[in-house]
Simulated scan of single mutants.
Amino acid sequence: YANATIDDHSHSSILTLTNHTSFSIGRAFYPSKIPTKSSFSSNPLPFSTSFIFSIAPFKHLLPGHGFVFLFSPFEGANGVSSAQHLGLFNLTNNGNPKNYVFGIEFDVFKNQEFNDINDNHVGLDVNSLTSLTSQDDIWVSGKHDEKFKELKLNNGENYQVWIEYSDSRVNVAMAIAGKRRPNRPLISELVNLSDVFLDEMFVGFCGATEQLIESHKILAWSFSNSNFSIGDGLVTTNLPSFGFVLGISFGIFIFVIGSAAMVFVVLLKRKRSKRMEEEGDIEDWELEYWPHRISYEDIYAATKAFSEQNIIEFGGMLKDVAMGVLYLHES
Rank of each mutant, 00 (worst) to 15 (best):
S249Q: 14
P240F: 10
F51I: 07
E210D: 15
T236K: 09
D284I: 09
D145A: 13
I117D: 06
A301V: 07
K319G: 14
P57T: 01
S134W: 02
A56L: 01
G26D: 06
L193Q: 07
I6Q: 13
N118A: 08
S241A: 15
K110H: 11
S249R: 13
G178W: 01
R181N: 09
P182G: 03
T16G: 08
G233P: 00
D145W: 10
G64W: 00
S226M: 06
E189W: 00
L186C: 06
S82D: 08
S13H: 13
H292R: 12
I52G: 04
F74D: 06
H144L: 14
N43I: 13
K179Q: 11
S226D: 12
N158L: 12
A4C: 13
D7M: 15
S249I: 10
E278T: 09
F23V: 05
I25E: 01
F71S: 01
N171P: 01
H11I: 10
N225M: 07
S224V: 05
T209S: 14
L186Y: 00
T133K: 09
L129G: 03
W285Y: 15
T16Q: 15
L267Q: 10
N155Y: 04
Y327G: 10
M262P: 05
H60R: 14
I104V: 14
P73L: 09
F314D: 09
V203M: 09
H65T: 04
A301R: 04
L193Y: 04
K271E: 15
F148N: 14
S295L: 07
F114E: 01
A175G: 02
M174Q: 10
W221E: 02
S39P: 06
K179R: 07
W139Q: 15
S141G: 07
F109I: 11
F51G: 01
G251A: 13
Y1H: 10
N19F: 11
V325A: 07
V191F: 01
L287Y: 10
N3K: 13
I176G: 08
E164G: 15
N183L: 10
V140H: 04
F58K: 01
G233A: 12
N192R: 10
D284G: 12
D167C: 10
K147T: 14
V196W: 06
F205A: 07
N127T: 05
L86G: 00
F114A: 02
G79E: 03
L212D: 08
E200I: 06
A83R: 03
Q135I: 08
V191A: 02
G251T: 11
D8R: 09
V170I: 15
I34E: 05
I294H: 04
K110C: 12
I299N: 04
I257T: 12
G76Y: 05
N99V: 09
N111D: 13
L153T: 03
W139A: 14
M262C: 12
V263S: 13
A301M: 08
Q84C: 08
N171W: 02
S22E: 15
I187E: 00
I25M: 04
A177V: 08
L124N: 01
Y1P: 07
Q84N: 13
